[in-house]
Design a protein around this nucleic acid. Structure first.
Lengths: 303, 303
DNA sequence: GATCTCTCATAAGCGTATCTTATCGGGATG
DNA sequence: CATCCCGATAAGATACGCTTATGAGAGATC
């Protein structure tokens, strides 16, 4: 069976036309090279080298085989170079899924950082609901997703990125002490506006409300937080607004944000990928970058 | 260092997407294949395979590397096929040199036989004087030559093909017993016609004549035996004609051929090639073919 | 939910291909 | 004729790659 080693030796010999020099060039002893060449000739059933007393000459077949060998070695080198380049962390295509209640608020903060820190990274963003993201992740259609933890399906690894507390968004005209911390009981008499089915944010809000046995839960789902906030501003009800959205969604003066009393409701946003993914190292780096980036922004939010 | 084995294993794995099946396909144990794949990945610094619980999937880099590997393996197979085909004896180009006093008489007899026995053989014929042929042979411009032996230069191998006796060609009008064997002394009073300088035939004839101390040697050299025979027919003198030429050159009724008394003068025609030539086996076969072919013809000549 | 089975990874031992050093033979060279 | 250079050969050491046996993890099954 032909080996690359034989082709490498043949290449060296074709270059130097001298067994010892060729052997030096490939850093082996001269007999080692001689034997490999001989083995190659035996394997091919054709003499490649004409051993003259003084020098060495390639036969016609030797020239042809050496030329082919060179081409093959070049291809192997190219393969090697390609793979080593591609093996660098956070380069090339990376398909990232993000849920709708995070994407529009997080992306503007992290994309500039990522593109400057990893200029070779080619991000593709997909925004949809948690379940679809999880399925696509497991099917290999996505490399990683950013969702609210936990991602309970097996075979996945989750790393928390940041805590995202919920604030109570309500109509500003309501007479309420702005500094007062909202208590669960305060929600009992409210009309709570939620996103439509499938949004994890809806489930998280419902979960908190159920704990406090809210009665007036209005489950008419909206398709986006922007819509919900419009309804809040118009006085149709209140909602639990993730802190990360606050800067973007609360430009309307008719809306007031109130912080909950401890323990504040919150969601944990995390990065999730397949345990078997070969880019785990990449995702570790990505988690670090995202934590630092969001950490700075988080301070601004907390202030 | 990347090895072809690793690429072969990767190819099998990419095909079967299953370690055990891939291992079966390349006839090794599953751990052997696993280790080679791992080694390849370590060498390239990139994960090629994503090991899922159930099945195996190629990473993006794995797909690319596998595709390149397939191309390389194909090229290696092509190299192998080419060399094995080219390694068959007496196929492909073969440059054969022949001296002028043999070529036009021998070629018509051997070419049909060679082309039918070795249809893949691509003969290139060069006809010139012995010295030029020998030099070109040693320079690698020719693969073998057919000359009158001995070829005394070192580094060459000679194999005799046939004995070519000289006949005395003389004007038919001369009164001489046609059955009588010519004796060396008979030449003393003759005008001997020879080829020009450089033809070995001239030297061989002169050698014979000198032995018998001929006096009237006319050294005005002709450029071809045909010319010499024209002069013989016209009565300008006699010449030593190689037996192999007799059929072709003695159609003129004015010319009579006489056999010499033993020991008859003769030349040994042989095939000569470089001792280091990788096609020695080819030439051995060629010698056999030529001996048989000329042997048959030789019988006819001798009759 | 314990067991079974399938996956690929790991470990231990072995065989052999490959390497090295040392030496040979042959031809060129002074 | 002695010497040098070249490539081939020989013998021993090394290391690589293989096999068998076993492990670990995840589904599948009853």
């Amino acid at each position: 069976m032909i080996s690359l080693r034989q082709l490498r030796y043949l290449d060296a010999l074709a270059t130097h036309l001298h067994f010892r020099k060729a052997a030096d060039a490939v850093s082996v002893s001269q007999p080692a090279l001689s034997m490999q060449i001989k083995e190659l000739e035996r394997d091919l059933g054709v003499m490649l080298i004409e051993r003259l007393p003084n020098r060495v000459r390639l036969t016609r077949e030797g020239e042809e085989v050496a030329a082919r060998a060179r081409a093959i070695l070049t291809d192997v080198q190219d393969l090697h170079d390609y793979a080593r380049q591609a093996g660098q962390p956070l380069t090339g295509p990376l398909r990232l899924g993000i849920i709708p209640s995070i994407a529009p608020y997080l992306l503007p903060r992290i994309l500039p950082v990522l593109s400057s820190a990893h200029p070779e990274l080619r991000l593709t963003i997909r925004e949809t609901l948690t379940q679809a993201l999880t399925e696509e992740l497991q099917e290999g259609k996505l490399d990683a997703i950013i969702i609210a933890l936990p991602a309970d399906t097996a075979g996945l690894i989750s790393e928390p990125l940041f805590e995202d507390r919920f604030l109570l968004a309500r109509c500003a005209s309501d007479t309420l002490d702005r500094d007062r911390r909202v208590l669960p009981d305060d929600l009992e008499k409210e009309n709570i506006l939620l996103l439509e089915e499938g949004h994890c944010l809806r489930d998280q809000a419902l979960n908190y409300c159920q704990n406090v046995s809210t009665a007036g839960g209005n489950t008419l789902g909206a398709t986006s937080l922007a819509t919900v906030m419009q309804m809040v501003a118009a006085g149709y009800g209140v909602t639990l607004l993730p802190e990360i959205c606050a800067d973007f969604e609360v430009r309307d003066e008719r809306v007031t944000l109130l912080r909950f009393a401890d323990p504040q409701p919150a969601r944990t946003v995390g990065l999730v990928w397949r345990k078997s993914s070969p880019r785990s190292k990449d995702f570790g780096i990505l988690v670090d970058t995202l934590r630092k980036t969001v950490g700075k922004a988080g301070c601004r939010l907390a202030g």
